[in-house]
């Protein structure tokens, strides 16, 4: 997986094409899932900061999708008073973040940015662009790879001990949840947790678990 910088040009090219295709798009950047800029055409916006914040927002989005059983991450759209910020999945290790004016055609933005996300995923996935840092959590490893998530895991791992799932689904008592150690990354914690009755209720029987955090799903859409 030797970095081949030439693909960075292709990546940048993809971002420029996106800008050309969508009117009122003010900037875009491709970033790794942990917040490092891969390529940017951000039009004056501070790319590093935006990429880092994208990663933070992505972390919350992944958890929210997981907890609500919404499956893997596809996109995140923020509408501010003076513009849009949208983040699209681009393979398992990267995202595409797009900035647009408030009058942008969001329908068109979705169509074009989803396609661009697929192509960026191809560029990144073939190892042409250095895969910086950690990938997005893979199925079954969600808890191990992201620091905010283990809090939820002890809660579910505790299930079988806690009198057959009589503990309310919402918010475990911090005093009981705290002593449970976070599972080691990549361990078999997830399969162990699954027999818990509550796990099924909360995550739709592990269906979300297998898809959560696999933005590589993106290509399926087109």
């Amino acid at each position: 997986m030797a970095p081949q910088p030439v693909a960075l040009d292709e990546l940048l090219d993809e971002l420029r094409q996106l800008r050309a295709r969508v009117p009122h798009l003010t900037g875009s950047l491709a970033a790794s899932a942990d917040g490092l800029v891969l390529a940017e055409d951000a039009g004056g916006v501070e790319a590093e900061g935006t990429a880092a914040l994208t990663a933070a927002a992505l972390g919350v989005a992944l958890r929210l999708a997981d907890v609500t059983g919404s499956g893997g991450f596809r996109e995140l759209v923020l509408r501010g008073e003076t513009g849009y910020v949208a983040t699209y999945a681009a393979g398992p290790t990267a995202v595409l973040t797009v900035l647009a004016e408030p009058r942008a055609n969001v329908g068109r933005l979705h169509l074009e940015a989803r396609r661009a996300g697929v192509r960026i995923a191809e560029l990144v996935h073939h190892g042409a662009v250095p895969a910086t840092g950690r990938p997005l959590p893979e199925p079954g490893r969600t808890a191990g790879t992201r620091s905010p998530l283990p809090r939820r895991r002890p809660d579910s791992a505790q299930g079988p001990d806690a009198a057959g799932g009589s503990v309310p689904v919402g918010g475990p008592d911090p005093s009981t949840a705290a002593p449970a150690p976070p599972p080691p990354p990549g361990s078999a914690t997830a399969p162990q947790a699954r027999p818990s009755a509550r796990t099924g209720v909360r995550r739709g029987g592990g269906a979300a678990e297998t898809t959560a955090g696999s933005p590589v799903d993106g290509p399926r859409e087109s």
Partner: peptide, 20 residues
């Protein structure tokens, strides 16, 4: 540019694309 609702359409007529 988003559709509030769509009906019908064919393989060749994607109504979300048409809406945008």
């Amino acid at each position: 540019g988003m559709a509030l609702g769509t009906i019908g359409g064919t393989k060749d007529l994607d109504l979300d694309v048409a809406a945008a």
